[in-house]
C-alpha cells in the first residue's frame, strides 16, 4: 500500500487519501479512523466526512493550524493499524427492478447513452456477461452492499457489492449526464450502486426503483425523524427484488407515514470479513435471521 496523502483543501479542509483505488479493506480502516476522530473531539475539528478511500476534515484554522492538525491525524493513523469492530446496520431495501419510470427516463435521454437500443438494465447485464434478467437480478442481490461513503446530496450512499474486486459488477456512466432522474431511482455506475434521494441530474445506469425513500426532509417516517437520511457509512443494504403489487403496497405505507424500515443492527468484524468473505457473510445472514 502506498503512503497516505495529507493535503490542504483551502484554509478550512484537509483531504486525506489512503488509496487511489477502491478497496473495502481500506474503507473499513478509514471508517475506524473517522469514528475515532469524532470520539476524540480534536480542538478545531468541525466534522469529518468519510469517503470511499479517503476522508475530508472540516476545521477552524483559528483553533488549529492545518499543519498541527495533519500531525495529529498522522499520529492517529499510526495508532489505528487495523480496523476495529464496526456497528453496522443491515437494512432491507425493496426494489422494483426494470420499472416503468426509470425506463421512461432512460428513453427520454437515449441520445446520451452508449447503447440506446437496449434498456440500461440490459446494458448492465450485457457488459457483465449475463443474458437472463432473472439470473442477473438474483446474482446482483445475492449479498449485501457496503455503504462506503455518503454525500453528493443528502442521503446519497455509495453502495459497494461485498465481493472480491474480480467479481465486481461494473458499468460506465452515461456518455453525457442526464438532466433529470426520478427520485428513488436505483442505478449503477463504476463499481457502485446508488439510489437518487431527490429528483435531479445524474449519469448512472438506471435499473430500478426503490419503494422506500433514502431522504426525508419533511420527517414523515418515524425511522428518519431527526436524522433525515437513511444511510450511515458502514451500514449494509440488502436489496430485495419485489413485484409491482408489493411496490404499490409499500408506497401506500410510505405515503401514509406508517412504513417502518427493516433494520437489524450487527457488530461487523472487518478482520473476519477479510479472512473469508463468503463464510462471514453467511454467518451474518444467519445471525440476522435469528434477530
Amino acid at each position: 500500500m502506498s503512503e497516505t496523502r495529507y493535503d490542504y483543501g483551502g484554509d478550512e479542509y484537509l483531504l486525506v487519501v489512503f488509496s487511489e483505488a477502491m478497496d473495502l479493506a481500506i474503507n473499513f480502516k478509514l471508517l475506524s479512523i473517522c469514528r475515532e476522530i469524532e470520539r476524540r473531539r480534536i480542538p478545531g475539528v468541525i466534522e469529518v466526512c468519510p469517503a470511499n478511500a479517503s476522508y475530508l476534515v472540516h476545521f477552524r484554522p483559528e483553533e488549529t493550524h492545518p499543519d498541527a492538525l495533519i500531525r495529529t491525524l498522522k499520529d492517529l493513523e499510526r495508532e489505528i493499524q487495523s480496523a476495529e469492530t464496526l456497528t453496522s446496520r443491515l437494512v432491507d431495501i425493496p426494489v422494483l427492478f426494470d420499472d416503468p419510470w426509470t425506463q421512461e427516463c432512460a428513453k427520454r435521454f437515449a441520445d446520451r447513452h452508449q447503447d440506446p437500443s437496449v434498456s440500461n438494465l440490459e446494458y448492465l447485464m450485457r457488459v457483465n456477461g449475463y443474458s437472463s434478467k432473472e439470473e442477473f437480478i438474483t446474482a446482483y442481490c445475492d449479498r449485501p452492499f457496503w455503504i462506503s461513503m455518503v454525500g453528493f446530496v443528502p442521503g446519497t450512499a455509495w453502495c459497494y457489492r461485498m465481493c472480491p474486486p474480480e467479481q465486481a459488477i461494473q458499468a460506465p456512466k452515461y456518455i453525457r449526464p442526464r438532466t433529470d432522474t426520478p427520485e428513488r431511482a436505483v442505478a449503477h455506475a463504476g463499481v457502485f450502486l446508488c439510489i437518487y434521494p431527490v429528483q435531479g441530474p445524474g449519469g448512472y445506469q438506471l435499473i430500478g426503483m426503490s419503494a422506500v425513500p433514502v431522504y426525508d426532509p419533511e420527517e414523515h417516517l418515524p425511522d428518519l425523524k431527526g436524522r433525515y437520511i437513511l444511510a450511515n457509512a458502514g451500514d449494509r443494504w440488502q436489496f430485495r427484488p419485489i413485484d409491482m403489487d408489493e411496490y404499490n403496497d409499500i408506497r401506500s405505507e410510505v405515503e401514509a407515514g406508517s412504513y417502518r424500515y427493516r433494520i437489524i443492527e450487527q457488530d461487523f468484524r472487518p478482520d473476519e470479513y477479510m479472512r473469508d468473505p463468503e463464510h462471514y457473510l453467511k454467518h451474518l445472514r444467519e445471525e440476522a435471521a435469528h434477530a
Partner: peptide, 15 residues
C-alpha cells in the same frame, strides 16, 4: 485505478 471510472478526469469518489 479500480473503481474510478473510465474517463481520465474520474477519481474514486471523494469529498
Amino acid at each position: 485505478p479500480f473503481g474510478a471510472g473510465a474517463d481520465p478526469s474520474n477519481v474514486v469518489d471523494l469529498g
